[in-house]
């Protein structure tokens, strides 16, 4: 406030800071991004390749690692379609209809985002665990939920619950209800209206939502850690396998698997950005 004496040499918009301040801010931003964002990612790949690519690849080719990859894919394969159907149904009925309790439902859909992943795992142990509500009943019938695939799927369903609904809902709301109403006056039923009219209008957003849901399903750690039981080769997903290897001081292996997961994240990120551009342009085009 005191340096009213400085006279800018050339025109500078009133909303812009002086050049040296802008330069300073840019440098500071880049530094923050380097330390907080780039270095951690770089560290994953450097650590993974510390003893060379072959060692990293060998670590991935271990049977236990391969089993973890298979299990991770399996969990995602079950989880994503369930949340796809549920998320679409929820987004459709919130966007296209008015009913009492709509706000509560919208809040409920966001809820898993603000719940600790550990709690997401915990709630299913409380129900299906050895001392859970259904524990004795399940034990008597020799059905294993916790420390087995169903538990992993349930915990993953919980943490990936909002993704599809959250990405598709704003798009559906933006589209309004005109086209669906027109379809109704032309004699179309609910399913047809949904498939022929609503869905094509949100397809890119939907794909982005599915990708995000899938990335989280494959990368989830906290929730599945609680329900997994950490049985190598059986109930270990990739992130859990990273933990085991790391705790056993097999750093090269741990970082190799971590690098694989990081790649998944990066690919998802790039694809999501691409889809956002595509749907943005799509809005104007057709």
């Amino acid at each position: 406030m005191s340096d009213g004496t400085i006279r800018p040499e050339r025109f500078q918009p009133a909303w812009q800071d002086r050049p040296w301040i802008r330069r300073l801010l840019a440098v500071a931003a880049v530094l923050v991004a380097l330390v907080m964002l780039a270095l951690p990612l770089l560290a994953v790949f450097v650590e993974a390749l510390r003893r060379g690519l072959p060692v990293a690849l060998d670590a991935i080719a271990e049977p236990d690692t391969l089993a973890a990859i298979r299990l991770t894919l399996l969990v995602a394969l079950v989880t994503v379609p369930v949340n796809l159907v549920g998320g679409l149904a929820a987004a459709w009925c919130i966007a296209k209809f008015d009913f009492p309790g709509k706000r509560v439902l919208t809040t409920l859909i966001d809820l898993p985002f603000s719940v600790s992943p550990v709690i997401a795992g915990l709630v299913f142990v409380l129900i299906f665990g050895a001392q859970g509500w259904l524990g004795p009943w399940l034990q008597a019938r020799d059905i294993q939920v916790i420390f087995a695939l169903p538990g992993l799927v349930l915990a993953t369903l919980f943490v990936t619950f909002p993704f599809v609904a959250r990405t598709v809902l704003p798009l559906m709301q933006e589209q309004g209800r005109d086209e669906e109403e027109a379809a109704a006056t032309l004699g179309a039923g609910g399913l047809r209206t949904f498939l022929m009219v609503t869905l094509p209008n949100v397809k890119w957003g939907l794909l982005a939502g599915v990708l995000l849901c899938n990335a989280r399903a494959m990368g989830e750690f906290g929730a599945v850690s609680v329900v997994s039981g950490h049985i190598r080769g059986e109930t270990n997903t990739m992130p859990l396998h990273v933990e085991i290897l790391y705790n056993e001081y097999q750093f090269a292996g741990a970082f190799a698997v971590a690098a694989l997961l990081a790649l998944l994240g990066l690919v998802t990120l790039v694809a999501k950005t691409g889809l956002e551009r595509l749907s943005g342009r799509n809005g104007n085009l057709a």
């Binding site: 005109d178 086209e179 027109a182 006056t185």
Partner: peptide, 16 residues
């Protein structure tokens, strides 16, 4: 609406 067989031209046309 779907069973009424009434043609409607919407204000902003609502074309698909």
């Amino acid at each position: 609406a779907r069973e009424r067989n009434i043609g409607v031209v919407f204000q902003h046309y609502a074309l698909f």
